[in-house]
């Protein structure tokens, strides 16, 4: 199993612990990764709302870079995954548009997007390629007693046509993963909702409310921590937690883990190796039991 690793911007910036954990876990699972150092930002949907053609060319370029290595792409960011899949669908559904994008891409870079590659998120690779059975065998420290609330993030869920969830309106893929790692998944009303990250700069109050509702909801349902496949969700739910907790007038203290960190823990890695020290809400307390 070999993938072109698309890190996304945040995993090299405010969430470097995500990249670290991803590399550790993939190595142990025998998933070979070639980092795409020449791939650009996916645009995060934002460039697409400024100049859709440019956004699509950038992503077509990223796809062509992977294709030229004969590799599929693995994303570790939920938003990048969603943006990539959306862009790919747009190109594949409209031959004329794909041709136009390729014309522009060729003009500036000499590259061409063929349309042969698959794009998967790390957790999809885990579930679809590695498989839960093989993963279970690699679990050396089952996360017994740990109550984990999955927070999917909008880009992993919607639109339903660009993800592989069996039931996007009521998914259980992350729950299955949590169970495989020995922990107990927690159900709570906010698990399919928005963390508020996209509007942090535009409407901070609303952003904090969304994040606060999600974390409070998980806590009230008995969760010890939240796991999420998107580092942007992680950022909003973790870095701003003291702020929205204080606004809500309550203690929250729910650590937010990236999916690879949770997997890595179960595979025996230490918190230091997972760089959880960089989390604003440190998981040390929650993970003390295991």
């Amino acid at each position: 199993m070999k993938y072109a690793l698309y890190t996304g911007c945040v995993a090299k910036g405010a969430a470097r612990e995500l990249l670290a954990a991803s590399l550790l876990v993939c190595e142990k699972l025998g998933v070979e990764l070639v980092e795409m150092t020449d791939a650009s930002c996916c645009g995060a949907g934002v460039i697409g709302e400024d100049n859709p053609m440019v956004a699509d060319i950038l992503n077509a370029r990223t796809f062509s870079l992977a294709e030229s290595q004969g590799l599929d792409i693995m994303n570790i960011c939920g938003t990048c995954q969603g943006v990539h899949r959306k862009a790919q669908r747009k190109l594949e559904n409209n031959v004329a548009y794909k041709e136009r994008v390729n014309t522009e891409l060729k003009k500036d870079t000499g590259r061409e997007y063929k349309g042969t590659l698959k794009i998967k998120h790390f957790y999809e690779v885990l579930l679809q390629e590695v498989g839960l059975e093989k993963l279970r065998q690699k679990v050396v420290r089952p996360l017994k007693g740990l109550k984990v609330a999955p927070f999917y993030g909008c880009y992993a869920l919607r639109p339903p046509q660009v993800n592989d969830l069996k039931n996007p309106d009521d998914p259980d893929e992350l729950e299955g993963l949590i169970e495989t790692l020995g922990a107990t998944p927690v159900d709570y009303p906010e698990r399919l909702k928005c963390c508020g990250f996209p509007i942090m700069m535009m409407n901070k109050d609303n952003s904090l409310k969304l994040a606060g509702n999600a974390v409070a909801g998980a806590k009230d349902a008995g969760a010890d921590l939240i796991v999420t496949p998107c580092p942007l969700c992680h950022l909003n739910l973790d870095s701003y937690q003291p702020q929205f907790a204080s606004k809500m007038g309550r203690e929250l203290g729910i650590p937010i883990l990236h999916v690879p960190q949770l997997v890595a823990l179960a595979m025996g890695f230490s918190q230091a190796e997972l760089r959880t020290k960089t989390h604003v809400v440190r998981p040390t307390g929650a993970l003390a039991a295991i």
């Binding site: 911007c9 650009s40 930002c41 645009g43 934002v46 100049n51 700069m201 535009m202």
Partner: peptide, 20 residues
Amino acid sequence: GARHALGFRESVGKRGFLDE
């Protein structure tokens, strides 16, 4: 919102990446 989008445009246009 627009400034945020401009920021993306400028940063990615310059570095291919986000300067967060």
